[in-house]
Simulated scan of single mutants.
Amino acid sequence: MNVRFFGNLMTGAAVAAAMALPAAAQTVLKVGLIDPPAHIDVRATERMAERVAELTGGELKLEVYPAAQLGFANDMLSGMKLGTIEMFVGATTWLGAFETDFWVSGTPYVFNDQDQARAVHEGEMFQGMADRLAEAHGIRVIAQNWDRGPRNFISTRPVETIEDLKGLKIRVPPQESWIENFKLAGAAATPMPLSETFTGLQQGIVEATEQASNWLYANKYYTIANNLTRTAHNYEETGVMIAERVYQSLSEDQRAALATAAAEIAPWHNEQVAQEIADAEKAMADEGVNILDVDVAKWQEQFRVNFDQIVEIVGYSPELADYLKSEWK
């Protein structure tokens, strides 16, 4: 297999040769993800591993473990803090368990669109959050600009207007920013583990759930819930993270290789996500799913009215809240 990275061609044989150094000459890091092997984040991490091997001449090897083989997200994050887990690739929103401001990506309509969401994650505010995380909790964020795509609703009854949220039993992650936002919008927010969501829809425990369209399609929610509402209410980013004590044990060249590889993979990753979303929405339409579009500006306005309350409830820093509001269109 040939893998091209922005003009550099590295064959599978070359990668294998680079990774075949004697054990004493090679540093091996295990990278955990909660996503299944076919997920874009897993495939991107595997490409990153190949690029790191090339950049370091095989001195640094990343072993990729998808499907929660190393534990669930919170387990892996706690493990990085303790130094028992080396690397994790997943939504930066999970980091809110340690630095509350990271939960903000789970707040509807804090970002204008995908490009602006990514730019904010790449900017000084989120870099400052990442620096505090490394210093206080021993988790370093190498990159946080791998798009996860806009989150939309899929539901058993049509959701066409903001008023249709009233009383809607919607599955939300068991996290305060999601719960409180939808409660303030009048929905019956129902915290539920992701693993129980399909059954919850099937049994009528919930009437709706929300994720990026490619994720909704991959989990086959459309076979139960026949209405996809493109609200684009959330924009999260995937982060590449490493235990700080592991990071400090690496050479400067190895650290640079991790940063370079993560940055080089981002455009390819984000293109794949956008294409997957387009393909998923077409496939659902072909399966007879009712595709609904909303007045996004109106939804933004309705949710943003409640933002100051959410800031107080969740405990976001005033600096972050003021910055995000200054960026609103």
Rank of each mutant, 00 (worst) to 15 (best):
M1C: 10
G12T: 09
A17S: 07
M19P: 00
L21I: 09
P22W: 10
V28G: 04
L29V: 10
P36E: 11
A38E: 14
I40F: 00
A44I: 01
A49F: 10
E50K: 15
R51D: 13
K61I: 11
A67H: 13
F72S: 08
S78C: 01
L82R: 15
A97I: 03
T100G: 01
D101Y: 00
D101H: 03
G106R: 07
T107F: 02
V110K: 05
N112G: 00
E122S: 12
M125F: 00
Q127D: 08
M129C: 02
L133D: 01
A136V: 00
A136D: 11
I139M: 01
N145S: 13
W146E: 01
R148L: 13
G149N: 13
T161V: 08
I162E: 03
I162G: 01
L165G: 02
L168C: 07
R171P: 00
P173C: 10
N181S: 15
N181V: 01
K183N: 13
K183P: 03
K183S: 08
L184N: 06
A187E: 10
A189Q: 04
P191Y: 11
L194E: 14
E196T: 12
Q203G: 00
Q203W: 01
G204W: 09
T209Y: 05
T209A: 04
N226S: 14
H233R: 09
H233Q: 13
E237H: 08
V240G: 03
I242Y: 12
D253G: 08
Q254L: 07
R255I: 09
A259M: 11
A266C: 04
Q272Y: 01
E281P: 03
K282Q: 15
G288L: 07
V289F: 06
V289W: 12
D293E: 15
E301H: 12
F303M: 09
R304Q: 14
N306W: 02
A321R: 07
Y323Q: 06
K325G: 04
